[in-house]
Design a binder for these strands. Structure first.
Length: 288
DNA sequence: AAACAGGAACCAC
DNA sequence: GTGGTTCCTGTT
């Protein structure tokens, strides 16, 4: 894997295991959208475009310096997904799911943004979640311009902590407005220390996140997997419950049972297994 | 127009 | 700790 600077970006040469469609459509992120031949995302205060071209990945609006301090980590490029897929493919069902979603990578997203995003995700579908987050960023974030288009950053904790409930409601988040404000206040005043939590072992970190208003077991697992490098986290939503019941367990399994089963079966790699299974289940409408 | 989809809070036991 | 009910809003 070699990085080459081009006009306004970078080429990551012959990278394995990275497909933008799989990575950005597998339910882990909400601020990436298809634009032309690739995906444009807002990450921190930057806009970046990702395009797949043959064996390479093109990053537009990216510098080599940002690659080293930001993008390498964000796209999880130091991790060997070939190894992970090799181990998981010993299971025939996962082998199938991996053949289908071979280019999924688990992004290392910002814990604060991930926390609020997945509070919004509760009892909601992906397209609506994206719309709500977009509304919130438009109202409370900073404006960024790139190539004649306007984008907005995700707001800071104290901004949302001071937001009016009715303004948040205006972003179409419904009853989650109260949760967003309450949790933002906890982060802003230090009641919740996200950096500290990300350094805790899985079980403790999970327990700690449940203190946040609007965060239950599933949302906590999403935050741990998508922003705190807890590869053993296994978020159980309806799709995962369906696919697990369909392939492995009998009907009526509780999330608790499903998590115990996957921890036993997939161990440290449970979160990666979850992503391949989720993407496969949702695209193929397994168990519906 | 009414049904539906989607996790957590809250309250009973 | 488990089970049932309620909470919003965009889509069908």
């Amino acid at each position: 894997m070699k990085i080459i600077a081009i006009g306004d970006g970078l080429i990551i040469k012959s990278i394995k295991d990275f497909d933008p469609v799989h990575t950005f459509e597998c339910g882990q992120c909400f601020r990436w959208n298809r634009e032309g031949e690739g995906y444009v995302g807002i990450v921190g205060n930057k806009v970046i475009k990702v395009v797949a071209e043959d064996e390479d990945i093109l990053l537009y609006n990216a510098t080599m310096e940002d690659y080293n301090i930001l993008w390498k980590k964000y796209f999880d490029l130091d991790r060997d997904y070939g190894d992970i897929k090799g181990v998981l493919s010993n299971d025939p069902i996962l082998a199938k799911a991996i053949t289908y979603g071979w280019g999924i990578r688990i992004l290392n997203q910002d814990p604060w943004e991930t926390l609020i995003s997945f509070i919004i995700s509760a009892n909601n579908g992906i397209s609506r979640i994206k719309g709500i987050i977009e509304n919130i960023c438009k109202l409370y974030g900073d404006r960024i311009e790139w190539k004649g288009r306007t984008y907005y950053t995700f707001p800071k904790p104290d901004t949302l902590a001071n937001a009016k409930i009715e303004d948040l409601r205006g972003c179409s988040c419904g009853y989650r407005a109260e949760y967003i404000k309450a949790t933002s206040q906890m982060v802003a005043d230090g009641t919740i220390d996200l950096h500290g939590i990300s350094n805790m072992p899985y079980e403790r970190a999970h327990k700690e996140l449940l203190r946040c208003m609007g965060v239950g077991p599933k949302v906590a697992d999403c935050i741990l997997l998508f922003s705190m490098e807890k590869g053993e986290a296994f978020p159980v939503d309806v799709w995962v419950r369906r696919v697990m019941e369909y392939f492995y367990l009998k009907d009526g399994a509780t999330p608790k049972k499903i998590k115990a089963f996957s921890a036993e079966k997939f161990g440290e790699l449970a979160g990666y297994a979850q992503q391949y299974l989720f993407y496969y289940a949702r695209e193929k409408k397994i168990g519906v």
